[in-house]
Design a protein around this nucleic acid. Structure first.
Length: 673
DNA sequence: CTTACTACAGTTTTT
DNA sequence: CTGTAGTAAG
């Protein structure tokens, strides 16, 4: 397919700063991919001087694949395509000397972060979860606004802020002492470095001569600063974004960065992509009319040439169960009538808890489905254990990892021993691991404890010396050496659970092996690199995308961004749910509207809303109003389908069930014939 | 290894 | 109110 005029224009404008306002489904990935090809083939850039930055590993991976397809592996060699965080990690790794940190640092995820904060603040916050969460996000916000502990203290006036700033200081000192970075550091540290260190700035500006940014509207303050420092005076860059799809402001994203861009780079060329290649005209019209209720920085009007399409439907139900039944019933009927596949349907909702009831009804009807989200692979205990071992292997100063694994599996090194060891280590200001190999330990530890500790340290040190030369063997030896499998069987609630945990561990090792070896898109990595990538949650999507089963997709609106489905159900269209109760005020309503907009624009052919006139909430039954967003849509394009007959819940259940089972029988019959 | 009770949360979560 | 995660006890 050829590029349209504005896409072509966006691809070929390479002489200055460029902002591509890419509406939903307007082919922005194609623009980025083609632009990279254009830069190399027509504009004289070498691949190694071009960097493209995304927010998710998945997006980075897709882009890599698309570019490799367009250019061929050879020409694409040396291109830097990664997430913000991975790019930051790369810079930190190369500049660790200038940053004054060790080369073998390890990474903290949010759970590690919480655990440490809880530890550090025990005396003040007493494990108050709410306060801890506040503290964590406050620290994160400070870091995202490039505010260090000293400035934070100076700017804190209330007692609580003072305390938080103090905790921030403690937390950061602890991290530095252990050679640990958190996610925010991966942006913060490179940004500070490029600000202060002219040489480093030159080095990186010379390395990255053309920069492309995807989903620009999701950048936060430090990321924008980071971008500015990377592009420098030369200002050769393209950012692609859509202010109407900014749904992460609660996480620090600043859609205002679009305005700042225009101010900071007066020469900015703005190109709008307004042709939508995804949705029917009617769906797009509804989306346009809805989003017009929001103020806009740049006016933009999407159009489609795919035909006007079917009416939008609204299914109104009497209660939540009924809503799920009617939606699923509609889906089954629709699939049957259109001879379509389950995989073409998506059910989108505002909050994760809404999925449960749909899951139940889907299960009752034996419909295959997939819920994205839920507990992450990397937050499972068995994975966290192994990750802690791997982290300690690459960074012996990682005290948190040390504490986690020193007695897992049991080595008779309990809290008392650890306490003594900790005091000793603090006095000498060395890490726990370091302290453990100190000869002076005989002063504080005796016989048995000392022996088990030294046995472990000796064995582990031996592994550490070999990670560079024979990482495979080390990883194998690690798993055997700790007898992790038998430990799992001892501690798991059931053998089946242990089996599952062991499979998870094996999965981790399979991925690890792949990463150490490298594949056609990625170079082989060192163990340290692989461990960092794991913490950055890389790897997960790789497997997910392989299993393209025929399953109904269930996900939150947030998770649906960037995806598309032929048939979409947008459920729970009620005041209090979408817009959500706590975001219903003047300040947040616009983002809720964008959330609805994102949901609507996921649909390619047909879009169905649903709502319930009754909902259980915190023990009460409430009667929510239909979402204001439904009323904002063009009513001529909507068909309201409400249940006319008044029946009791029980009758409805039987009726719904029998209708569904009748349909199922019909389908089975059709299949067999 | 299962069962039962208690405590707690109940918006979204790219890294 | 209701579901679940974690722990304690059978």
């Amino acid at each position: 397919m050829r590029l349209n005029t504005s896409q072509q224009q966006a691809v070929e404008y390479v002489s200055g700063p460029c902002l591509v306002l890419a509406g939903a489904g307007s082919g922005k990935t194609r623009v980025i991919t083609n632009k990279i090809a254009y830069l190399i083939r027509e504009a004289g850039y070498q691949a190694r001087h071009i960097a493209a930055v995304t927010f998710t590993n998945k997006a980075a991976r897709e882009m890599k694949e698309r570019v490799a397809q367009t250019l061929g592996r050879q020409e694409a060699r040396g291109l830097l395509i990664s997430t913000f965080h991975t790019l930051g990690l790369e810079i930190i790794k190369r500049e660790h000397a200038a940053l004054g940190i060790k080369s073998n640092f390890s990474l903290f995820d949010d759970q590690d972060q919480m655990a440490l904060l809880k530890d550090l603040t025990e005396q003040w916050l007493e494990g108050d979860k709410d306060l801890l969460n506040q503290l964590r996000s406050t620290i994160s916000n400070w870091k995202n606004d490039l505010i260090d502990p000293v400035i934070a203290k100076a700017r804190s006036h209330t007692q609580k802020d003072q305390l938080f700033a103090h905790c921030y200081d403690l937390y950061d000192k602890q991290l530095r002492a252990c050679g640990i970075l958190d996610f925010d550091d991966l942006i913060l540290l490179p940004t500070l470095l490029l600000q202060k260190n002219e040489e480093a700035r030159d080095r990186w500006q010379n390395r990255i001569r053309y920069l492309l940014i995807d989903e620009y509207q999701d950048t936060n303050t430090s990321q924008y600063e980071f971008i500015k420092l990377l592009v420098g005076q030369r200002a050769r860059f393209t950012v692609v974004g859509d202010d109407d799809q900014s749904i992460y402001s609660w996480r620090g994203a600043r859609p205002q960065n679009l305005v700042l861009l225009k101010e900071d780079f007066p020469a900015l060329k703005v190109i709008k992509l307004e042709q939508n290649y995804r949705s029917s005209g009617r769906i797009l019209k509804a989306a346009n009319i809805l989003i017009e209720n929001n103020p806009h920085i740049f006016e933009k009007k999407l159009f489609s040439e795919l035909g006007y399409g079917e009416h939008l439907k609204v299914i109104s139900a009497d209660n939540e169960e009924h809503e799920a039944e009617r939606v699923i019933g509609d889906l089954i009927g629709h699939r049957f009538a259109n001879n379509s596949h389950y995989g073409e349907y998506a059910i989108l909702y505002r909050g994760n808890h809404q999925s449960r009831i749909f899951e139940k009804v889907l299960m009752q009807n034996r419909i295959p489905y997939k819920i994205s989200g839920g507990t992450s692979f990397f937050s499972r205990t068995e994975i966290k254990d192994i990750m802690a071992y791997l982290r300690l292997l690459t960074n012996p100063d990682d005290d948190n990892a040390f504490i986690r694994i020193i007695n897992t599996p049991k080595r008779e090194i309990g809290p008392a021993t650890l306490q003594k060891l900790g005091e000793w280590a603090t006095k000498r200001s060395v890490s726990l691991f370091h302290a453990s190999s100190d000869i002076g330990l005989t002063e504080i530890l005796s016989g048995k404890r000392l022996e088990s500790l030294t046995t472990f340290i000796t064995w582990f040190s031996d592994l550490m010396t070999r990670i560079e030369t024979e990482p495979f063997e080390v990883v194998q030896a690690l798993l055997h050496g700790i007898h992790y499998e038998s430990w799992l069987y001892e501690t798991s609630p059931s053998p089946t659970a242990a089996d599952m945990r062991m499979r998870n561990v094996e999965q981790l090792f399979t991925w690890l092996g792949e990463m150490l070896r490298g594949d056609d898109l990625d170079e082989p990595m060192t163990l340290a690199q692989a461990v960092s990538r794991f913490t950055l949650r890389d790897m997960l999507e790789r497997n997910e995308s392989e299993e393209e089963n025929d399953e109904v997709q269930l996900m939150t609106l947030h998770a649906s961004k960037g995806l598309e489905f032929p048939y979409v159900y947008l459920v729970g269209m009620e005041e209090g749910l979408l817009p959500h109760q706590v975001s219903i005020d003047e300040e947040n309503i616009e983002e809720e509207r964008r959330l609805a907009y994102v949901g609507i624009t996921r649909a390619q052919k047909e879009l169905t809303f649903s709502l319930s006139r009754q909902r259980r909430q915190y023990g009460e039954t409430i009667n929510p109003e239909p979402s204001r967003f439904l009323l904002e849509l063009p009513q001529d394009d909507i068909q309201w389908e409400s249940q006319k007959t008044q029946v009791t819940a029980e009758q409805r259940m039987i009726k719904g069930q029998s209708r569904l089972s009748a349909l199922r029988a019909q389908i089975e019959k059709a299949k067999n014939s």
